[in-house]
Design a protein around this nucleic acid. Structure first.
Lengths: 203, 203
DNA sequence: TAGTGTTAAACAAACGTTTGAACAAGGATC
DNA sequence: GATCCTTGTTCAAACGTTTGTTTAACACTA
């Protein structure tokens, strides 16, 4: 039996594998990494992957589950009793914070969108649809209160807002030298996007 | 020597390989497809890939070169003598048309952004930077003519517009049931995005 | 004959997974 | 307290496939 100190100093094999597999899967994609590479970085025997996760796909699924778990918190916006516009701002702020806190999430996000694995249907797609539905709903709410201009489609508008903020982070590898992507500028970016969006949709 | 009819009915090995490799690379990623799979679909011997392209990477580079070649035409907007806002609309329309005409471009686009191959630096990054620069420049032009509100950062605004239109297509695999992505709705989408953007940036 | 295109077969290397032995710890039995 | 057995964990080694690439022979044209 493995001992478990209070500080959790013992290298818990399961969690070590997830920790080392995450950046590797994120940067090279599922097929770009070998189980030996992961095990090597984690200083763990290769067979541990099959032992704990039933195989490479199982480890990948575990990584993705951990990554997309944070997206469920977007649902908290739904129940809040605040202005729809404030909800959108909250979403934008939460998105920025999410990407800063977890630099690999967006990679899994887009990697699964473009080259889906079996995990796409079970993990990624439901997570994305959840977010889109909330944004749609929020805009429809504002529309019914005559807060936004009529004629605007809730879906198009929701995707437009999500696109502005997500695309900024997605393009970072290509525009790193052209654009200042430092976290210090995040606040400016958020206000910028909310500024354009607000003027764009308000009555 | 291979014979070459006027109708080009003979299966030109080089172009056949590119034609069959394109959807495969796009849907599964560089590491998700094997050379045997490509050769099988193309009904061509495996060794032809090394013979014509020097290897798998060479074939992939040829595919990417063909795909990203169309992005160079964005530069045509630069020289036009029209309103900056009209230039933005032209960019949005051209982008939609580009994705409709070539359903694989966006996949290579984002696949290279998230899991870059050696082609990213040589092909993808320059192409993306070229587009971003033109959008930046266009907005700065409008700013200097006091057409747009002051205080708006040209880069953030350019990326915001690009994000709105690109993200819509990127999310299609996940929101297919939630959103109508049919080409018939393209015109509505374009006007929608331009509507939000125009009101968002205009003085 | 020389040169180009195409083929099936073979190449070493890497792939994900499985194996069986070894090990350490906890509880039960004497 | 010493012994045994069970259970969970780890290991090096080997498994059979598949990987990308190369080879040598062949067909055809100029």
């Amino acid at each position: 039996m493995k001992e478990r100190t209070l500080e959790n100093t013992d290298a818990d094999c399961r969690e070590t594998l997830i920790a080392f597999a995450t950046p590797l899967f994120a940067e090279k994609g599922f097929n770009g990494v070998s189980v030996r590479e992961i095990a090597g970085y984690a200083s763990v025997n290769v067979s541990m992957i099959s032992y704990y996760f039933g195989g490479k796909e199982g480890l990948y699924a575990a990584v993705l589950n951990e990554q997309f778990g944070v997206l469920k918190r977007v649902a908290e916006i739904r129940t809040m009793e605040i202005d729809p516009l404030k909800k959108f701002e909250l979403y934008v702020r939460a998105t920025v914070a999410r990407y800063r806190r977890n630099p690999y999430l967006l990679r899994f996000y887009t990697s699964e969108l473009t080259n889906p694995t079996p995990c796409f249907v079970t993990i990624v797609k439901p997570a994305i649809q959840g977010v889109v539905k909330i944004l749609q709903e929020t805009f429809a709410d504002g529309l019914s209160h005559h807060q936004f201009r009529e004629g605007l489609d809730p879906t198009d508008t929701a995707l437009a807002l999500a696109g502005m903020i997500n695309f900024y982070f997605l393009l970072e590898p290509a525009t790193g030298e052209l654009v200042d992507h430092s976290p210090e500028r995040d606040e400016e970016l958020i206000q910028h996007i909310m500024d354009i969006f607000t003027r764009g949709v308000l009555k």
